[in-house]
Amino acid sequence: MSILHTVNKSPFDRNSLEACVRLAAKGGSVLLIEDGVYGAMKGTSKSDMVTNAMKDLTFYVLGPDLKARGVDEGKLIDGVKVVDYSGFVNLTVENDKAQAWL
């Protein structure tokens, strides 16, 4: 059993990403979408939280949301994978359910 967690809030604004990391079981996937993409950037006060969580969870970020916000892929935490909407769909298929941390 595995869950695709989606996080759509900036970690600097809300605790959605923190809650997701706290409550996501090992082996799950986390997809950062909308303002959630800011959580994928390295060198921030939240980067260590994500890097630590990557021991148990796989992190993805939605490319179109990154591009819309002018976030260069080179600024992403190493190991965070960029997917497009079709990749998003695939992630929902590969995991057996989805949890949106609204």
Binding site: N8, T92, K97, A98, A100, L102
Partner: peptide
């Protein structure tokens, strides 16, 4: 088979 939720 899957429910995907979009919200605030």
């Amino acid at each position: 088979e899957r429910l995907v939720v979009f919200g605030d």
